[in-house]
Simulated assay, not measured.
Amino acid sequence: MTTHVVLGGNGVVGRETIAALRAGDHEVRAVSRTPSRSEPGITRVAADLRDATSATDALRGADVAYLTVGLPYSTTVWRRDWPVIVRNAIDGCLAAGAHLVYFDNVYAYGRTDAPMTASTPIRPTSRKGALRAELLRMLDAARDEHGLEVTVGRSADFYGPGAATSAFNLFAIDRADAGKPPMWLFDANQPHSMTYTPDVGAGLAVLGTDDRARGLTWHLPTAPALTGEQYLALVSGGRLAHRTMSHGMMRLGGLFASTARETLEMDYQYTSPYRFDSTAFERTFDVAPTPYTEGIARSLGYAAAKV
């Protein structure tokens, strides 16, 4: 039996990956710093992936590992922790002989006017992008020098039920649920792709279970981009006004919230077209992304139902 290990099992992407693997009747080991109770088909394991021994122990016996860890949105934290976590995941996978499925974002592409594909050049234009590019180089070196089998699954900005770290959830879904006007960042007239988190999890599960995916970089299923105005209209349903957060408002917010400060260097993602093309994945594996009407409705329903 294949042993699937999800690193970051408590985060939204980890949870969705576990759900997709279980839907395929796979046994899963879910690794997190503070695991919840195990359940049928899911063994919960405590580990700190910043500690090499802890990471290696968590990956012992793994056939496929999924690195879905999320970190606080801070360049300082990312520079301190991401290289350590990725190095420990690499070493643990090499020791176990495991295939590593690495969940990535688009920051390493940097500014680009063309639709993003898996062959878009890595040309970061931000501090966070440079760090993500460094992690990709680490994975490439482990593959070329030590034989690591690694597959990369990349998403656009994600949103979805319980996606607490998503900007769209924070500024649009959660605000609408609270009866406040949903907001978009900087320019609501620009097209901007968003990936639905259940599609992320299902896509990562495919990468870990379908031999056609192995060793390549894939864009996970993502519906064609809408504009910020169109997304906010879906959220509000015509019942709430909506508005755009300006750079000035974000800078003011940055005086009180670090997330606002950290978002400013990524403003190019909202001030120019941000199109993410997942056609190759969809055609190869015969899947379709969840339409925004459905994904936003489910996200709103989840927010309304939470205690």
Rank of each mutant, 00 (worst) to 15 (best):
N169F: 01
I90L: 06
I42Q: 11
N10G: 14
K128P: 09
L59V: 01
G147I: 06
L7M: 11
L67S: 10
P224H: 02
H219A: 05
F171C: 10
D157K: 07
T53Y: 08
V31M: 01
G97D: 11
Y270L: 12
H242P: 07
R283L: 08
P221W: 01
R79W: 12
F168N: 01
E265H: 11
T34V: 15
T222H: 06
A297G: 09
D157S: 09
D48A: 06
S278R: 02
D199R: 05
M183E: 13
S155I: 02
P115D: 05
D91A: 12
V13W: 06
G162Y: 05
D63I: 03
L148G: 02
V106A: 06
R275L: 12
L59M: 15
A65N: 02
S126P: 10
V12A: 09
T284R: 07
M266E: 15
G9K: 02
R175T: 04
P182S: 05
P181E: 00
A95M: 04
Y66S: 01
A133E: 09
D144E: 15
R87N: 08
H99G: 08
S258A: 13
L240C: 07
R29L: 02
R175N: 08
V287L: 02
A163M: 08
V6T: 07
D157F: 05
V287P: 05
A47D: 03
H247D: 15
G254K: 09
I42G: 07
A19T: 07
A297Y: 05
G238N: 01
S74V: 08
P35R: 00
Y66P: 05
I122A: 13
A223P: 00
V84P: 03
M266P: 12
A95R: 12
A205W: 03
G129S: 08
R123E: 14
A95W: 04
F256P: 10
S54K: 08
N189G: 15
S54E: 08
P121N: 08
D267V: 10
R80L: 12
Y231Q: 04
A163H: 08
A172G: 08
Y159F: 15
R275W: 03
S258T: 13
L94P: 01
T244R: 07
A297Q: 12
R44V: 05
S74C: 10
E282N: 11
G153D: 03
L216M: 11
L232S: 05
R137M: 12
L67N: 09
G208C: 05
I90A: 00
D174G: 06
R298A: 14
Y196K: 00
A30P: 02
V307K: 14
S36G: 14
E229Q: 13
N189F: 11
G179A: 00
V77E: 12
D267W: 12
A305C: 10
L94T: 08
R33S: 11
A23S: 12
